[in-house]
Amino acid sequence: MRGVRTIAGDTANTLLFRELGRSDDQAEEAFWLINPGLAEYGAVLPAGIRVYLPEIEEKPAAAARASVWD
């Protein structure tokens, strides 16, 4: 489990996307499970808080593109 410090204006989604390259439901759920009590800070996390990132091996499945000709 890798730990990082938040920067000003971080939310769970922006932090996950910056550090893991994804912010889907699976990554966010794992993030909140390994960081209990973090939700008490609200939607925007204060700068300098040490949080832990989930170790998720697989990338989310890419959504099929829709076309007007389908």
Rank of each mutant, 00 (worst) to 15 (best):
A64G: 12
E55A: 11
I49T: 09
E57N: 10
P36D: 13
V51S: 06
L38T: 06
M1W: 00
D25F: 13
P60D: 04
L38S: 07
G37C: 12
G21S: 02
W32C: 01
P60T: 03
R65A: 12
I7W: 03
A62R: 09
V44M: 14
R2G: 00
L53P: 03
T14K: 08
G9I: 02
D70V: 11
R18N: 06
G3T: 14
A61C: 10
F31G: 05
G42P: 07
R18G: 01
E29W: 04
M1A: 02
G9V: 04
E58C: 03
P60A: 06
L20K: 01
V51D: 01
A62T: 08
G9H: 06
M1C: 00
I56V: 10
E28F: 05
E58Q: 07
E40P: 07
F31L: 05
L33E: 14
E40I: 10
G37V: 11
A8F: 08
P46Y: 09
A47E: 15
I7N: 02
G21N: 04
S23H: 04
V68Y: 12
T6P: 05
E40N: 15
Y52D: 05
P46W: 08
K59N: 06
Q26D: 11
T14H: 06
A64I: 14
A64Q: 14
L20R: 01
W32F: 13
E58T: 02
G37R: 11
D25G: 10
